[in-house]
Amino acid sequence: MNPREVAALLAYVVRLDPRMNVEDQAAAEERLAQWCDLLSDVPAQAHGWDAAQTARDYIARNPYRIQPSDISRPWHAHKAAALARHTDPTPAVDPDNVAAWRAELIGTRQAVATGAALPSTHRELTSGGPAPEVRDRLAAIGRRIPPEAAAALAQYRPRRAERERLAAEDRPDPYAVPCRYCRARIDKPCRNHRGVPRTAPHPSRLDDATARHHAQQEQSA
Rank of each mutant, 00 (worst) to 15 (best):
N2Q: 12
R4W: 10
A7F: 00
L9W: 04
L9G: 06
L10M: 10
R15M: 03
R15E: 09
D17A: 05
R19I: 04
N21C: 13
E23L: 11
E23R: 10
D24C: 00
Q25A: 15
W35L: 01
C36P: 00
D37Q: 12
L39M: 01
L39W: 02
D41Y: 07
V42F: 04
A44G: 14
A44L: 10
Q45M: 13
Q45N: 14
G48S: 08
G48F: 08
D50I: 02
A51G: 04
A51W: 03
R56L: 05
D57H: 01
R61Y: 03
N62M: 04
N62R: 09
I66H: 12
Q67K: 08
P68K: 02
D70P: 06
I71H: 04
S72F: 03
R73D: 14
P74W: 01
W75D: 08
H76Q: 15
H76D: 12
H76W: 10
H76I: 05
A77D: 13
H78E: 08
A80Q: 10
A80P: 01
L83F: 01
L83D: 03
R85W: 06
R85G: 00
H86W: 00
H86N: 11
V93S: 15
V93M: 10
D94S: 10
P95T: 13
P95Y: 12
P95E: 14
N97E: 09
A99R: 13
W101H: 03
R102L: 13
T108G: 08
R109W: 03
R109F: 02
R109H: 05
A111L: 12
A111W: 08
V112M: 04
T114S: 15
L118K: 00
R123M: 11
E124F: 09
L125P: 08
T126K: 09
T126Q: 07
G129T: 03
G129W: 03
E133I: 03
E133V: 06
A140T: 11
G142H: 09
R144Y: 07
I145H: 03
A149R: 10
Y156V: 07
R159Y: 09
R159G: 01
R163S: 05
R165G: 12
R165M: 11
L166D: 03
A168W: 05
R171L: 15
D173K: 06
P178H: 07
P178S: 08
P178G: 07
R180Q: 15
Y181A: 13
C182Q: 08
A184I: 00
C190P: 13
C190D: 08
R194I: 12
P197C: 14
H202N: 14
S204P: 11
R205Q: 15
L206K: 02
D208C: 07
A209C: 09
A211E: 14
R212W: 01
H213Y: 09
Q217A: 13
Q217T: 05
Q217R: 15
Q219C: 11
A221S: 14
